[in-house]
Structures are given as C-alpha cells and as structure tokens.
C-alpha cells in the first residue's frame, strides 16, 4: 500500500492526460490546479456527481471547476490527499484546521474528515 500511494503521488507531478482544471481561491489568491477526473471521481462523491452529469463547464475537453471558497493552499493539501491518502497535520494552526475541515466537509471526502477529526 505504501508503494501504491507513493506511485499515485507521482501522478500529481505528471502533466499528462489531465482533464480537469480547478480554480481554487479568488481574486489575487487564485490558483489553477490540474487533475485527472478518473481519480477525483473515484475518491470523492462530490466530484463524481459533478462530472457524472454533463453540466460541468468544459473547455477544450477539460472540465472546469471553480472553488472560490477554498484557498489554493488548502486545496493543494486536499488534492494530495485525494491522490495518495497522505496528509501532514502537524503544522496546522487551529483556524487553518477548521478551514480544512469545512472544505473537506463540503467536498464530502469522508476519509479525510475522519482523519482530521481523529487528529483533533
């Protein structure tokens, strides 16, 4: 399992076959993330629902998703967890932790919710 999660983490770096563009944050704090819809759908019901019906905006064959209420910093951590199930909570401050929990709750990633609650 360790090996698998390492390999999946590498997928984050590989810039190939990515078909989702996610804009996290808003205004000056806006960042673009690229990901694989297959992995997102598998790991999160939220993404599954979003991509399942073809009502998500598509540009050049890419799904476009906007998450203005989640900061790019947080989204990066969440995306990493989605890909490989790893998260390092030790450097989180209280308010940040709460933001993480809220974001994860919205995105309905149950494993991470459990993980954070356990840590708290």
């Amino acid at each position: 399992p360790r090996e698998i999660s390492n390999d999946y983490e590498k997928l984050l770096e590989v810039e190939e076959d990515q078909d989702v563009i996610i804009y996290a944050g808003e205004n000056e704090n806006l960042k673009e993330f690229r990901a694989h819809s297959l992995i997102l759908c598998t790991r999160s019901q939220y993404f599954f629902a979003a991509f399942y019906n073809d009502w998500v905006e598509k540009k050049n064959g890419n799904f476009i998703l906007k998450k203005p209420n989640i900061s790019p910093q947080l989204f990066k951590i969440i995306l990493r967890f989605i890909y490989c199930g790893k998260i390092d909570l030790t450097n989180f401050q209280g308010p940040e932790m709460l933001k993480l929990l809220t974001a994860v709750d919205e995105l309905n990633i149950q494993a991470l919710i459990n993980c954070v609650q356990k840590y708290l």
Binding site: A49, A50, N53, D54, W55, V56, E57, L65, K66
Partner: peptide, 15 residues
C-alpha cells in the same frame, strides 16, 4: 435545461 447550470455553484448554495 440542466446544461446551463453550474453544479459547484448550486452545490454550494445548498451547502
């Protein structure tokens, strides 16, 4: 007419 809707927006509304 679902295609004119934005899923993440509606989701966030309900949320």
């Amino acid at each position: 007419n679902a295609s004119i809707l934005s899923f993440e927006e509606l989701y966030r509304n309900a949320y």
